[in-house]
Amino acid sequence: MSTHQTQVVIVGGGPSGLLLSQLLHRKGISSIVLEKHTRAHVLGRIRAGVLEHGFVNLMREAGCGARMDREGEIHEGFHIAHQGQLDRIDLAKHTGGDTVMVYGQTEVTRDLYEARDAMSGVVIHEAQNVQPHALTEARPFVTWEQDGEAQRAECDFIVGADGFHGVSRKSIPSDVLKEYEKVYPFGWLGVLSETPPVSEELIYARHERGFALCSLRSRTLSRYYIQVPLTDRVEDWSDAAFWQELKRRLPDEVAAGLQTGPSIEKSIAPLRSFVAEPMRYGNLFLAGDAAHIVPPTGAKGLNLAASDIYYLYHGFLDHYLKGDSAGLDAYSEKALARVWKAERFSWWMTNLLHRAPEGSETDLRLQRADLDYLFSSDAAQASLAENYVGLPY
Results as ranks from 00 to 15, higher is better:
residue 109 T to K: 02
residue 163 G to F: 01
residue 345 F to P: 08
residue 362 T to D: 03
residue 247 K to H: 15
residue 165 H to A: 09
residue 390 G to D: 08
residue 359 G to Y: 07
residue 112 L to R: 01
residue 384 L to C: 08
residue 125 H to R: 07
residue 315 G to N: 11
residue 118 A to S: 13
residue 176 V to M: 08
residue 350 T to D: 02
residue 241 A to H: 09
residue 70 R to I: 05
residue 308 D to C: 14
residue 269 A to E: 15
residue 360 S to C: 08
residue 59 M to T: 04
residue 83 Q to C: 03
residue 147 D to N: 15
residue 214 C to W: 04
residue 126 E to G: 03
residue 11 V to R: 00
residue 361 E to V: 09
residue 45 R to G: 06
residue 99 T to L: 00
residue 7 Q to H: 05
residue 390 G to F: 10
residue 387 N to Y: 12
residue 332 S to I: 10
residue 161 A to H: 09
residue 79 H to N: 10
residue 362 T to P: 00
residue 1 M to P: 15
residue 72 G to E: 05
residue 334 K to H: 04
residue 159 V to P: 00
residue 236 D to M: 02
residue 82 H to A: 14
residue 392 P to Q: 05
residue 276 A to D: 10
residue 148 G to S: 12
residue 333 E to Q: 09
residue 388 Y to S: 02
residue 339 V to L: 15
residue 348 W to L: 11
residue 326 A to N: 06
residue 228 V to N: 00
residue 99 T to P: 00
residue 49 G to I: 15
residue 241 A to C: 02
residue 21 S to A: 14
residue 345 F to Y: 14
residue 362 T to E: 03
residue 78 F to Y: 10
residue 162 D to Q: 11
residue 23 L to V: 03
residue 43 L to V: 14
residue 212 A to M: 13
residue 306 A to V: 08
residue 108 V to R: 00
residue 111 D to V: 07
residue 296 P to R: 03
residue 281 Y to C: 09
residue 190 G to N: 09
residue 327 G to L: 15
residue 275 V to W: 08
residue 119 M to G: 03
residue 84 G to R: 09
residue 320 Y to Q: 09
residue 3 T to G: 08
residue 295 P to N: 12
residue 33 V to C: 12
residue 282 G to T: 04
residue 11 V to E: 03
residue 181 E to G: 13
residue 375 F to R: 02
residue 135 L to C: 07
residue 315 G to F: 05
residue 23 L to Y: 04
residue 143 T to N: 04
residue 34 L to H: 14
residue 162 D to F: 11
residue 15 P to I: 07
residue 59 M to H: 03
residue 9 V to E: 12
residue 61 E to F: 07
residue 173 P to M: 09
residue 275 V to K: 01
residue 294 V to E: 01
